[in-house]
């Protein structure tokens, strides 16, 4: 059987495949999860991913950009899979989600730093679950013998006091917006962002009544409307850039990523991705830190010096 390269595009998913006699490479983009940000397109080392802006229909809300992947250029390296903040892309080899670039330490993984201490949870609180803009959190209550309780009100006070709260978060799909953290009344959750940066909307340059950025922003509350103008709440922005893609005026929306939290790695591919996602300045900064870390490491080894 000759090598088959297949691309299928449905309303739900875009799938790319290399079918070889002994191996099957598959990339699936879940269109329900994709928000049309620019992260994968910027990071792809083969420039195989293109963003297609959707035409604006007057009177309707703006639609986020769609992504298209070129089967001729894609090499199934899975960098898009690793970097997608929303977990919309999966690359598998023979059906298994193996990330060879991570295994060979030629690309880092994003750090999704989400700490949960359920001991402080009030038994009937579901604030986080309700606040999550992407529906990634599920709060359950368990009895002492680990049975799920659907209706806490029907329990006696004693039983109630013995209940344990469990919070399940679909981490691989979480962009770490921190909304849950801010909505938690008891400080149960601590979330650190993956992408750090700067976003500015110059309202003066915005076209009259335009809310395109707000229309496509997947994080409720990161952008908000006041006096017919869109404002930013940097607290929640994940710097994915979905807004930037649809903004009709070049200078109206400024977005800059300054830092990406990732596992440590020494890789040209990562340096290039970082350069494109953030800026050459950030890349040099990171390289410098690595350099000084390395220098410190070698000094420590030689002199037994323990600096800070």
């Amino acid at each position: 059987m000759p090598l088959k390269t297949v691309k299928t595009d449905t309303a739900e998913a875009l799938t790319l495949e290399w079918i070889l006699h002994v191996r099957n490479y598959k990339l699936t983009l879940d269109k329900n999860l994709c928000v049309g940000c620019q992260i994968c397109a910027l990071a792809c080392p083969k420039e195989a991913i293109k963003l297609e802006k959707q035409p604006k229909i007057p009177g309707e809300k703006a639609k986020h950009a769609k992504i298209d992947i070129d089967l001729e250029k894609c090499n199934f390296c899975a960098i898009c899979d690793i970097l997608c903040p929303y977990g919309a892309i999966k690359v598998t080899v023979n059906g298994e989600h193996l990330l060879s670039v991570v295994e060979k330490e030629s690309f880092p993984q994003l750090i999704r730093d989400i700490q949960v201490d359920t001991s402080k949870c009030p038994v009937d609180c579901v604030e986080c679950e309700e606040a999550c803009p992407l529906d990634l959190i599920k709060v359950t209550r368990l009895t002492a013998d680990k049975k799920i309780v659907e209706d806490a009100d029907s329990l006696s006070e004693k039983e109630k006091s013995e209940l344990q709260v469990k919070i399940d978060i679909q981490e691989e799909r979480c962009p770490c917006c921190r909304i849950c953290e801010f909505n938690c009344p008891e400080g149960v959750l601590t979330v650190r962002k993956i992408f750090h940066g700067k976003i500015n909307i110059h309202a003066g340059k915005c076209p009259e009544g335009c809310t395109d950025c707000l229309d496509v922003c997947p994080i409720t509350g990161a952008l908000y409307l006041s006096d017919d103008k869109v404002y930013v709440n940097e607290m929640f922005c994940v710097y994915c850039g979905a807004c930037k893609i649809v903004c009709p005026v070049e200078e109206a929306l400024e977005l800059k990523r300054t830092m990406i939290r990732h596992t440590s790695v020494r890789s040209g591919a990562w340096n290039k991705a970082l350069e494109r996602l953030a800026s050459p300045v950030e890349m040099t900064k990171e390289l410098k830190t690595k350099g000084s870390l390395k220098a410190r490491e070698s000094v420590r080894k030689r002199l037994g010096w323990k600096g800070t």
């Binding site: 670039v101 030629s106 890789s267 040209g268 591919a269």
Partner: peptide, 11 residues
């Protein structure tokens, strides 16, 4: 055509 230039080979 396929290399992602991670430079692991160089190492």
């Amino acid at each position: 055509d396929y290399c992602i230039e991670c430079y692991k080979c160089v190492d």
